[in-house]
């Protein structure tokens, strides 16, 4: 290049290039500071979120203390609020969801990671990703118009007749309730279990499989006795992740759970969950204590998902690192 390009100071005079460089350094400093401000905003927002939840629930925390968690009454008329029925609803629906989603999801993940040829596996994973993108209000819509009628006509009679002697399957059924919400939640969290478990399974070193096969085990034995135990912690992480999603899920649950704060062993009974009660009552909450009790519920939900997400991330990181740490 014969022309003296301004950005090619390879032969420039020493003094000139020094001031040029220092000006450049200034530009770098400015860029660094600007991007840092934006990065710091993220931290600030997160801290602010925790702070707002904490201060805006002060009244409820001061009045009820730990009794908040063991009180069954939720009555705006006498200004008495307890979180127990909602926590019960959240936990029961999430448990039902995991009970259905875990076997199905892990089975599918094993198929995608171990058996399916890469092209089929990728195509199916693409559909699973799309499934994860379906918004929760759509799941709710389908829940209201498909799962609820199905519950009344097929699932309730099918479970109540042979198993009605168990407290879980006692009638009557209104269509909406814990089980309906659990089923809808299960469909919603399956994609998360599949995606993460598949990734964890794929990170298991190849020689683990080959060693098992070389010792004469069948395909399934190598998968179940060698690969799955190797990926155990990561799969557990995917389950925690799914649980965190299920606990915080609002719309789909609100639409099919019935919104009656009850504690009942029967899965057919209508109930309520933490997220649903916030969604339903927040705008109509009159009085500070009422509103702050709802925020306190939000705080509880936040803490639950916070702990679960942290655990999940830890488990997933531990497994994938162990996979890549083993020399292949």
């Amino acid at each position: 290049m014969a022309t003296s390009g301004t950005t090619l100071p390879n032969a420039g005079p020493v003094t000139g290039s020094r001031s040029f460089l220092s000006r450049l350094r200034d530009g770098d400093e400015i860029a660094r500071l600007i991007t840092m401000v934006f990065a710091a905003t993220v931290v600030l927002i997160t801290l602010l979120l925790v702070y707002e939840l904490w201060t805006n629930s002060a009244l409820a925390r001061a009045k009820f203390g730990l009794h908040f968690f063991v009180t069954q009454v939720w009555d705006p008329v006498i200004d008495q609020y307890g979180a127990l029925p909602f926590m019960y609803g959240t936990l029961v629906t999430s448990a039902v969801a995991l009970f259905i989603a875990v076997p199905l999801g892990i089975g599918a993940a094993i198929f995608l990671a171990e058996l399916a040829p890469p092209r089929i596996s990728d195509t199916l994973q693409f559909f699973i990703d799309l499934l994860a993108a379906v918004p929760s209000v759509i799941y709710g819509l389908l829940g209201v118009f498909i799962v609820v009628p199905l519950m009344r006509t097929v699932i309730f009679p099918g479970l109540n007749k042979p198993l009605g002697f168990l407290p879980f399957f006692k009638g009557p059924s209104y269509g909406v309730g814990f089980l309906t919400a659990g089923i809808v939640l299960a469909i919603m969290v399956i994609p998360y279990i599949i995606s993460v478990s598949r990734e964890v399974l794929l990170s298991v070193p190849r020689d683990q499989r080959e060693a098992a096969l070389a010792l004469g085990s069948t395909r399934w034995e190598s998968t179940w006795n060698v690969v799955v135990p190797f990926a155990k912690t990561g799969i557990l992480g995917s389950i925690f992740l799914a649980l965190a999603r299920a606990l915080g899920e609002t719309m789909a649950v609100t639409m099919v759970i019935g919104n009656v704060p009850t504690i009942s062993a029967s899965l057919f009974s209508p109930g309520d969950s933490i997220a649903s009660v916030i969604a339903n009552q927040f705008t109509e909450a009159t009085g500070d204590l009422y509103l702050q009790s709802l925020v306190a519920l939000g705080l509880v939900l936040f803490l639950m998902t916070f702990i679960l997400n942290g655990l999940a991330r830890l488990l997933i990181v531990v497994t994938t690192q162990r996979g890549s740490g083993v020399p292949t």
Partner: peptide
């Protein structure tokens, strides 16, 4: 902080924005 924010249930984000 970003991972934490990502895991916050959407209804809680609603409370915060409120």
């Amino acid at each position: 902080a970003a991972d934490l924010l990502n895991g916050v249930p959407s209804i809680v984000i609603g409370i915060f924005a409120y």
